[in-house]
């Protein structure tokens, strides 16, 4: 057993108050004339031992009452059997990486992770301390309701995130919650690329929640490069695409499609590359993107690029 507010144990000195009262109560100053003192003496004679025992028991109960109050004020915690949990210091590590935006069975993976995180937050008691740590680098503390609201407001990020860093932060935070029991809860889609390295969390228990979902077939635009770096007025767009089967692609500059075609099947681990010529219609920095047909994992169906165009031709504009 340990105490959340051990400094309040000093109040145990108040246990001396009933003891003092018990000892001082014999110094009575009020005097009353009472002719039937003989009955009083007889009563005292017959019941003094019984009353002494009763008084001592009463004193003991008063001492116990004071000590119990002090112990309650110091907020003891212990692992006991039965329902509920002892006070914990929990860090909820939520994977917010782009891969969690995948839609499986009509629902994003991230919404499932959100639901799991909310479940954890809703089970917190006022004695617990809790933090929300996302792979995007966000850290916030609060009670169960506050954290649940923050979890609901989150969206998958556009990048990969830093789950390693989130775990290290979580480890430091739960250490600060001592003497509560430290716990780290990780909610992730379990992408093999999520963790770059092993993170040492010592003896802190880590609960990992990974939804059991079938991996959706993914059509992805892995990378886009433009050549040369300055278009006068045109250049090439080098696109790396993977897809389980043939997939239609488009290259857009602004909202204008400058090229389109169909790419053959290529696995995710060995995507195919194609080069597409393109002409600009304007000068300056132009925003462009490469799209493939949308699938359940929309996060990598599109990849953006920018190109500096120094000249343009009217032919290109006519086109």
């Amino acid at each position: 057993m340990t105490f959340l507010a051990p400094f309040l144990l000093g109040l145990a000195a108040f246990a001396g108050v009933p003891l003092l009262v018990h000892l001082l109560r014999r110094r009575v100053t009020r005097r009353v004339e009472f002719p039937a003192v003989r009955f009083l003496m007889q009563t005292e004679r017959e019941h003094s031992r019984e009353r002494a025992v009763r008084n001592r028991l009463l004193l003991l109960l008063r001492l116990i009452a004071v000590l119990a109050l002090v112990a309650a004020a110091a907020r003891p915690i212990a692992q006991l059997g039965g329902a509920g949990h002892p006070p914990i210091a929990v860090a909820i590590v939520l994977d917010q990486s782009m891969s969690t935006s995948a839609v499986v069975d009509g629902r994003t993976v991230f919404s499932r992770l959100q639901a799991g995180a909310r479940d954890v937050a809703e089970q917190l008691t006022p004695d617990d301390r809790a933090w929300l740590v996302t792979s995007a680098g966000r850290v916030s503390a609060g009670g169960g309701a506050s954290l649940a609201a923050q979890i609901d407001a989150l969206q998958p990020s556009a990048g990969r995130g830093d789950l390693d860093g989130a775990l290290r932060r979580a480890r430091a935070l739960v250490d600060a919650g001592a003497p509560r029991t430290p716990v780290i809860v990780v909610l992730s889609d379990g992408q093999h690329s999520a963790l770059d390295s092993l993170v040492a969390v010592g003896d802190v228990p880590v609960i990992v929640h990974v939804p059991e979902l079938s991996v959706p077939e993914n059509r992805a635009v892995h990378a886009v490069e433009v050549e040369p770096s300055r278009w006068v007025p045109g250049g090439r767009v080098k696109v790396t695409i993977s897809a389980p089967d043939s997939v239609a692609w488009r290259v857009l500059l602004g909202e204008r499609t400058v090229s389109r075609g169909t790419a053959g099947p290529a696995p995710f681990a060995a995507p195919g590359t194609l080069e597409v010529p393109a002409q600009a219609e304007d000068t300056g920095w132009l925003a462009g993107r490469v799209e493939v047909d949308a699938d359940d994992f929309a996060g990598n169906d599109t990849r953006a690029f920018a190109v500096l165009c120094l000249l343009y031709t009217s032919d290109a504009a006519d086109e």
């Binding site: 009575v28 005097r31 009472f34 002719p35």
Partner: peptide, 8 residues
Amino acid sequence: GAEAVFTD
């Protein structure tokens, strides 16, 4: 009344 010393 309160505690007192009762005197005959």
